[in-house]
Each structure stands twice: as structure tokens, then as C-alpha cells.
Design a protein around this nucleic acid. Sequence first.
DNA 1: ATAAAATTTGAGCGGTGGCTCAAATAACTG
DNA 2: CAGTTATTTGAGCCACCGCTCAAATTTTAT
Lengths: 205, 205
Amino acid sequence: MAKLARKEREYRTRRAEIITAAERVFSAKGFDKTTMEEIAREAEFAEGTLYNFFKGKIDLYLSLIEEKSEELLGYLHKQVSKAVGAGEKIRCLIKAQMGFFDKNRNFFKIFVRERNSFEWMAQKDRTKRLSKVYQTYIDFVARTIKDDLKRGEFRNLNPRETAYALAGLLNSFVCRWPKSSKKERLFDQAPFLTEIFLKGVQKSR
Amino acid sequence: MAKLARKEREYRTRRAEIITAAERVFSAKGFDKTTMEEIAREAEFAEGTLYNFFKGKIDLYLSLIEEKSEELLGYLHKQVSKAVGAGEKIRCLIKAQMGFFDKNRNFFKIFVRERNSFEWMAQKDRTKRLSKVYQTYIDFVARTIKDDLKRGEFRNLNPRETAYALAGLLNSFVCRWPKSSKKERLFDQAPFLTEIFLKGVQKSR
DNA sequence: ATAAAATTTGAGCGGTGGCTCAAATAACTG
DNA sequence: CAGTTATTTGAGCCACCGCTCAAATTTTAT
């Protein structure tokens, strides 16, 4: 019946509100310095309410990363699938990722920060859930590179290693961003990075 | 007199022992999840003793990063200054950094992790002391790149932006390391990274 | 050997923050 | 509206941890 559907919709809305509130706080303070009390205040709920939507602090954090990452990957997938021609998929991937981060500044801080440290994290389940997310991301980048490289005049490199190199190039560059002016868009830096990377992997002649 | 000198030596030895113990724990658990009690246990001192050597947890952490970074920079400087010829300094920088990290696995974890998040950190003094460290590092890389690029057939790029790109390339690659086998050395990966980077910045022809 | 000075020790204090749960409130139902 | 169920609330519990300081121990001086 319609009633049930509305309830479900409202539940999701509230859940999403909590997630974006958490995103703001986590991105500003990092996981450890963020308190549930602060997320609750930001989301305009009482602290206890958060526990009706998430098992605890870690679950909330991981849910946020997982869901936003899915969004990112979906977007990248959609954009990249359009591109054809040697190097075009890679070019498109870089542009798409920068564009996504421009629109999701808060999330990107969490994504980058976590990506660089998840490897040696303490809690078991946290490591597991996170590594899945980042493996999926790297796999996608590696596949894109693989498809693209064999199409043009590129060296025969290990796609996975190359994917790490590209991800690193993007991430670190992106780390300067918080310091630069608000209006500056990451998207505009895409050509610079694309050029370095594509030249870097092309065949010598 | 000789007596005073010995005291001083012993003081420094104990201090260094605490720092390397802290290095082990911090690298394994990260700043927040590391407790003073655990560092004390690892260093075989009582908790209170740590406070005779450092003002507190943050001071210990920052001292560790500052002192090891100085060591790293000194080593890089020494190695790079030997190199001559287009691209040679950069090649040498990459090899030296990988070699240093091979020998300082624990420190490198802290260095990389912190480098990626210090930009938006909470505590004022911590940010200040850290940003100085990383500015010095990036400055050095930028200077090396600048010296080198004008010597060969390279594009006219902004050295500072390019330094961030290079640092990112190295760091992210290095992030895979903890997963790979113990015997695998970062040093052996240097050629792969060097090639991508040098090709990436060379003039089109 | 003994007193004085320096160093180490670890139990305990105080503040913090994740999480719970009984009570309050709101939403449905007939 | 009354009764029932679902949701929200926030004060308080409790475990944790950085840090202190009086007492114990070691080192130095005489």
C-alpha cells in the first residue's frame, strides 16, 4: 500500500540527511576527532536517533564511504563508456573524476585521506569493508587503462601498477586543493595531469 | 668534564629509544589509536618517564616526524648533489627516496599518511609544525625538478605543481607496498616510476 | 657510608565520548 | 478520541586515556 511506501521514503530521507551531516563533520575533523554528538547536532537529531539508522560510529562512517563511492564509480562508468579512441577513455576518466570531486568536496577529503591509510588499519571489519571499496576503484581504473593502452601507441605496462600510479598522481595533486581558492576547480587541472600521464605511458620513438 | 658528557649521551640514547618505540606503535596504529601506555611498554619505561623527554603525546609525535624527516632530507640532499646531466637528479631523487623508505618502513608509513591529511588538520600547532616539514620536502623536490628540467628536453612546467605530481606518484605507489611480500624492495620499483615521470614531462617531438 | 640530587615509577585523577534505555513524544488505527 | 505502536530523546553509564605527582629507586657527591 501507499502508506508503507511513504514511510520507507521518509526513512531514507532521514538516513540520507544523517549521512550528509556526517560527511560534513568527518571531512572537517577526520574519523577520530568527530563525535557522535556533533554529527547529531549537525543533522538536527538527538544522539540516540543515529543508532536507529546505523549500528555505531564505524558503521555510519563506512556506509557513507561505500555509498558515495558507488555513486562515484557509477558516474565514472557512465562517462568513460562514452569515450572511444586511444587515450580517450583515460582522458575522460581523469576529467570525470575531477568533476565529481569539484561537486563533492567533502566526500573527496574523506576518500583521499582514507585511501592512503586503509591498508594498515586496526579494526578488522573496517579494513575489510574499505579495502573492497578501494579494490573496486583501482580495478575500474586498471580496466580502463588496459582497454585504452592496447588501442594506441603505448608501452606494454602492467595495468594494475599503472592504475596505482595514476590514482596517486590524481590524489596527491588534489591534496593541494583545499589550500587554493574556493573558486578554482579541479576540473581545470585535468589537462595538466592527463598530459603527464599519457606521455608517461606512451611508446618511446 | 667527562661526567657531564656521559649523562648527555645517555639522555640522548634513552630519548632515541623512546622515539623508535613510538615509531613502531604509531606506524602500526596511527596517532589517535596509539596510547602513551603502549609506547611506554614498547620502550620499556614507565608512562611517566616519557614526560621527562617530551611535553606530551603530540610533542613526541611531532618530534619524531621532524627528526626523521630531517634525516630523510639530509640523505636525499647528499645523494642528489652527486648527480649531473639532464634528468639525472630526478632519477637519483627517486632512487634515493625509495632506498630510504626500504630502510625505514615504519617511518615511511607515518610520513605518507600524515602528508595526505595534514592540510586540514584540527590542532593549530600541530598543523604549523607539520606543514613546515612538508613544505621543506616539497620545496626540495621542486628545486631538484627545476634544476633538472632546464637542462634537457623538457617542457616548461611549473616546478611546484610538478613536484606535487611526482610526490603523489611516489607516495601512492608506495602505499601498495605493505601488502606485497616483505622481501620486495621499493628500490626495485624506481625505474618504473622514473620512466613514467620523465617521459611525462619531456618535450613532445 | 651517608646525605643530597636526579631520575623513574605507576596508581589515580579528571575529562571525554560511544553507546544505552526508560521515558516522552509522535504517528497510526478503528 | 482513545488505544496502540513506532520513533525520538538526552541524561547518564562506563570504559578509556592523557597526564600528574608523591613515593620509590638510582646516581652522584662528599
